[in-house]
């Protein structure tokens, strides 16, 4: 693998670790399977791209992308909490609506940021790490967001949020408004995803209306890999797992693409991601249900044929 491929994988991994953090907040902490992500990711990208093209300061433009993502999350939250639409459907409705909204925001299917000043531009001279500059900036942002999420979940509101997601009956008895917690959590989750989309557009030099497809599955893949490696109960480990899982996952993909493993090509990425998530979920469930260990089980599966139930 070339240095360029490695830096590219690291960059993408750090970017999607923000999505993984968002997915951790919704899927794990709040117990809200939120599919808004596939729409809020390109929304963050679109809002930032439009702002930058119109001469807005890139840092402000990034904040706009983040806010736009949060607003999308809030819509899903309101659909669920106020109008009692099933959480899964609420996310899907917002996601579908966002496809049209993103086209409206951009005015066309894609916007190029080639030659524009982005959030990475000042660091190219400041840090001067060559192809690693973006990685360094993204590493700083990802680690900062990890600690921000850790801190938030240890505050009074954060604790109420965690209780609300795990045990809504108990949370209510401790005067926690579960609806309000859902709104806060889903908004923050999608703000993180909007930030990821915004940074993705700036690092890749373009925003595209179809760039959101599969975001949720990539985020889940990173989350589950992290949980498998570091455990999922303590917040600080789970968020670290989001970072590590996401980077590792991107390295797997890059390595597979590079080696031509099973003839995998770039267009097969979503299929591979879906398969990885499905397998990882099955394995993690098996592990939770029994004293299942990943490596012995894999070794057994690879060396000896499993007896068929019949």
């Amino acid at each position: 693998m070339s240095a360029l491929a490695i830096s590219g994988a690291l960059e993408a991994g750090l970017l999607f670790s923000l999505v993984a953090l968002g997915v951790y907040l919704s899927f794990r902490v709040l117990n809200f399977p939120d599919l808004t992500v596939d729409g809020s990711f390109p929304l963050g990208a679109a809002a930032t791209a439009v702002a930058i093209v119109n001469g807005v300061n890139p840092f402000l433009a990034t904040a706009i992308g983040m806010l736009a993502g949060g607003a999308a999350g809030l819509v899903s939250g309101i659909l669920n909490v106020r109008f009692r639409i099933l959480n899964l459907l609420a996310g899907i409705l917002t996601m579908v609506a966002l496809y049209s909204i993103n086209l409206r925001v951009m005015g066309r299917p894609n916007i190029s940021l080639y030659g524009e000043t982005t959030i990475f531009t000042p660091f190219e001279t400041l840090l001067d790490f060559g192809i690693w500059t973006n990685c360094a900036v993204l590493l700083f942002i990802a680690v900062a967001m990890k600690f921000l999420v850790d801190w938030f979940l240890s505050t009074q509101i954060g604790l109420a949020l965690r209780a609300s997601g795990e045990n809504p009956v108990m949370a209510r008895a401790q005067s926690v408004g579960n609806g309000r917690m859902t709104l806060i959590g889903i908004t923050l989750s999608n703000a993180l995803v909007g930030l990821a989309g915004s940074l993705f557009a700036q690092s890749q030099g373009m925003a595209d209306v179809s760039m959101g497809i599969g975001t949720i599955v990539t985020g889940l893949a990173a989350l589950i890999i992290g949980e498998t490696l570091l455990g999922s109960i303590k917040v600080v480990w789970a968020t670290l797992g989001c970072l590590i899982g996401s980077v590792l996952y991107r390295f797997f993909i890059a390595a597979a693409l590079n080696a031509g493993f099973l003839g995998i090509q770039a267009q097969d990425l979503n299929l591979v991601t879906a398969v990885v998530v499905a397998v990882a979920v099955v394995l993690s469930q098996a592990r939770r249900n029994s004293r299942f260990r990943l490596w012995p089980a894999l070794r057994r599966a690879l060396t000896a044929p499993q007896p068929q139930k019949g």
Binding site: T155, I157, A160
Partner: peptide
């Protein structure tokens, strides 16, 4: 943490450290 949650029952929960 369970106790901290109960200790803020009925009050306004903010961004102070829960513990």
């Amino acid at each position: 943490e369970n106790l901290a949650l109960a200790a803020s029952r009925g009050g306004r929960r903010g961004l102070r450290t829960a513990l």
